[in-house]
Design a protein around this nucleic acid. Structure first.
Length: 400
DNA sequence: CCTCCACAGGAACTGATGGCGT
DNA sequence: ACGCCATCAGTTCCTGTGGAGG
């Protein structure tokens, strides 16, 4: 009589593992030499070079699609510079922040402040006026005679926040040096959106875009090389079949040249192969991994929605392919069934476009002449997926 | 050619939350 | 104790619109 758990454990123990170093299979792992980005590394280094001469470098803007290694290169260069400078008496303070992780302007400034060493009592996490927070940041820099380098990732998000709130933070940041008597502030902005600059205030452009570096997309060949490098270090020899590697590079690199996706795909494929006790990663493993990654993404985003968004999704599932009006009445029925107050149609339209952005549903604007203008939505994922994701939500169980 | 539908989607506002400085 | 500030979900009010049907 064998226990299934024991069987699995036995198999896992006796089976050999084909991945020898997992860390290397994460995009954010910084290899000693980031190949294929020599040019860009040089450019970034050059524009930051003045730091070594103890003067303030120009502000810097870095563009590139996701997965082109922008952030990695910037981080690597900066940390090298910091290493050198540390031995001199010109301390630089590196501050990294990702605008996407901070939903509000306030949050972003606070996160910058925390890294500068402002504690909770010096810089509370809410309650202050933005201008007050800003003042404290500057006085910290001045007081500590810091030479701060703010690396702001996804700076286009920040720019959006600035527009939304009408606070001219970007401008003030880029011109902060004029107010500082001691210390300095350098900005390194990283953006995915190549057109983002056009939306900026021209005064900001002139000071922020003193230097610009564009990271081009990887092509499939380059992605393949990157994968090969990582494979060499992280997998045992000959454990990836050539066609599997090709597919990996093609799937991830084909459209956008996204090395991050390629590496993720490689890792998941490897893990799948290992779990199946295969000693090679085959083309099927890659296909399976690609599916699995997609599904995980869908499930995670489905689960993370608040109640009313979930109801809207279920409403669409019930009347797949219908107009906003029909979805809305379907949604109202669901609300009634649950005894919840329904939200206005305006709010639901907004939710629909938010959900559409995430790719779970797709909408199409149709004009029906005398029957008006509406947007028809249909699910972009299977309804099984929705049922599966929502089934552990107690209140939703009986309506799905 | 005009009308008029059924919404899309912008703008401004509200009320609650939470916490500041004075 | 008071006024002020930032943020968020949501509401109210609004203007805009392609084309079927008259």
């Amino acid at each position: 009589m064998s226990d299934p758990i024991d069987d699995l454990l036995d198999a896992a123990e006796s089976g050999k593992s084909i991945i020898k170093n997992r860390d290397i299979l994460h995009f954010t792992y910084i290899p000693d030499t980031i190949l294929h980005r020599k040019n860009e590394q040089e450019q970034v280094t050059q524009s930051l070079l003045p730091i070594l001469k103890q003067s303030r470098p120009s502000n810097l803007l870095v563009y590139g699609k996701p997965g082109t290694g922008k952030t990695l290169v910037v981080k690597k260069v900066l940390s090298k510079i910091q290493e050198r400078v540390e031995r001199s008496n010109f301390p630089i303070k590196l501050v990294y922040s990702n605008s996407k992780n901070e939903t509000t302007l306030y949050g972003l400034l606070v996160s910058l402040g925390r890294q500068l060493g402002l504690e909770q009592d010096e810089l509370p996490s809410n309650g202050l006026a933005i201008s007050e927070v800003f003042k404290r940041l500057l006085s910290k820099i001045e007081g500590g005679k810091l030479n701060a380098i703010f690396v702001i990732d996804e700076i286009d998000y920040l720019a959006q926040l600035v527009v939304k709130t009408g606070k001219d933070i970007l401008y003030q940041l880029t011109r902060a040096n004029e107010q500082l008597k001691q210390g300095s502030l350098t900005m390194v902005g990283i953006s995915n959106d190549l057109t983002f600059k056009e939306k900026l205030d021209p005064r900001v452009i002139s000071s922020l875009g003193e230097e610009e570096i564009v990271f081009t997309n990887y092509n499939v060949e380059q992605i393949k090389k990157i994968l090969e490098e990582r494979i060499n270090e992280s997998f045992i020899e000959n454990s990836i079949e050539e066609p599997a590697l090709n597919l990996c590079a093609a799937l991830a690199g084909g459209e956008h040249g996204d090395a991050r996706r390629a590496i993720d795909l490689l890792r998941v494929s490897g893990e799948l192969a290992e779990r199946q006790q295969s000693d090679k990663v085959t083309i099927e493993h890659v296909r399976e991994a690609s599916l699995k990654i997609e599904e995980n993404k869908e499930e995670a985003s489905l689960k993370s929605y608040p109640l009313h968004e979930k109801l809207v999704i279920i409403a669409i599932m019930k009347v797949n392919g219908s107009s906003t009006g029909e979805i809305y009445s379907s949604y109202k029925n669901l609300c009634k069934a649950l005894g919840k107050d329904e939200l206005t149609q305006r709010r639901i339209t907004q939710m629909l476009s938010e959900i559409e952005l995430s790719g779970i549903i797709s909408g199409r604007l149709v004009h029906q002449g005398i029957h008006g203008r509406t947007k028809k939505y249909k699910l972009a994922i299977s309804s099984e997926m929705i049922k599966k994701s929502f089934k552990d939500d107690l209140s939703l169980q009986d309506i799905v």
